[in-house]
């Protein structure tokens, strides 16, 4: 059936999503998401960023039909989210996946395979593949009450993947994982992306997102404040930061750097940072040689995703 389906260009299409909650004993309503319009193209990893309370989880809940939007509509692969069949090609991993504690990892994934419409040998193959992908095959008979938080997260991921979804919606997937688990998750996400899957991932772990996301959307106070590739969102910045070591403060060097439009910032005993335009980097090297200052490091002044995020949400 899957092979016959044509893949639309847009995996998620949201038009003017607004969610308001009534506040007890007050006339005005609390706006969780306000007038959100967003399109996530098929293929690639879309990072949905925002601080706590920005409206990320509410948006995901509306996309999956858990909550009706106060205003607006959304489509998953061109099917309206109100239609249960819209979730046929979607896998979902909640922030903390909860399953009946008396079931084993294998039973949980088996149940989710059945709910995704898989049966027989195809189901068996998918269950084994997914449990192996998340490194839970050896512990498949372990009861969930005995599993650690990270293991439960892995079971959740296997359950989300078992239906071979074209779109994977993940809410803070690395929250329960240790550094090794996070690394494995990044590798798995990259592999899924390379398989042509669309991944919609909500997170506030920006350093991780920067390395894997193709596009990001930044939410703040219920509104989408930026959307594009990480390169489009971060400010390029025309400068470099040069870390130097010198025996004592050199006023000649400082004056010259100031004349070139840069600045000098002391960084402890015998160490300083020079901020200079990138075009002058070779001139600065020459100056350092003349003034007998030791070069430690030269780094680009380009804004990180974290810097951009803080700028956008502040």
């Amino acid at each position: 059936m899957k092979g016959n389906q044509t893949m639309p260009n847009t995996a998620i299409r949201i038009q003017q999503f607004t969610k308001e909650y009534p506040v007890p004993r007050q006339k005005e309503k609390r706006v969780a998401v306000s007038n959100l319009t967003l399109a996530v193209p098929t293929g690639g990893l879309f990072g949905f960023l925002g601080p706590n309370g920005a409206g990320k989880t509410t948006t995901i809940k509306m996309l999956l039909g858990f909550l009706p939007p106060t205003v607006g509509e959304a489509w998953l692969f061109d099917r309206p989210v109100g239609d249960d069949r819209a979730r046929q090609r979607v896998g979902y991993l909640p922030e903390q996946p909860y399953f009946p504690k008396f079931l084993s990892a294998l039973e949980v994934v088996k149940a989710h395979a059945g709910l995704s419409g898989l049966a027989g040998n195809r189901a068996k193959e998918r269950i084994e593949l997914c449990l192996r992908q998340v490194n839970m095959w050896d512990n498949r008979h372990m009861i969930l009450s005995k599993c650690s938080k990270g293991m439960t997260q892995r079971v959740g991921l296997a359950s989300a993947l078992v239906g071979d979804p074209d779109l994977l919606i993940m809410d803070e997937p690395s929250s329960g994982l240790d550094p090794l688990g996070r690394k494995e998750l990044r590798e798995l996400l990259t592999a899924l992306k390379n398989d042509g899957k669309t991944i919609f991932l909500s997170s506030h772990l920006l350093s991780e997102m920067e390395s894997v996301c193709d596009r990001v959307g930044v939410m703040a106070r219920g509104k989408l404040v930026a959307c594009g590739t990480p390169a489009e969102i971060t400010r390029a910045g025309d400068g470099v930061r040069v870390q130097i070591e010198q025996a004592e403060r050199d006023e000649v060097l400082n004056t010259q750097i100031a004349d070139w439009g840069g600045s000098v910032e002391a960084a402890g005993e015998g160490s300083a940072y020079l901020r200079v335009p990138s075009a002058l980097v070779y001139k600065v090297m020459g100056l350092l040689e003349t003034r007998r200052a030791r070069l430690v490091a030269v780094t680009s002044q380009r804004e990180t995703l974290e810097d951009a995020f803080l700028r956008l949400v502040s």
Partner: peptide, 14 residues
Amino acid sequence: EQKTVYPVIAKPVA
């Protein structure tokens, strides 16, 4: 309360 409903309803289950 235990949030076990989410993974189930997120599947194509009416």
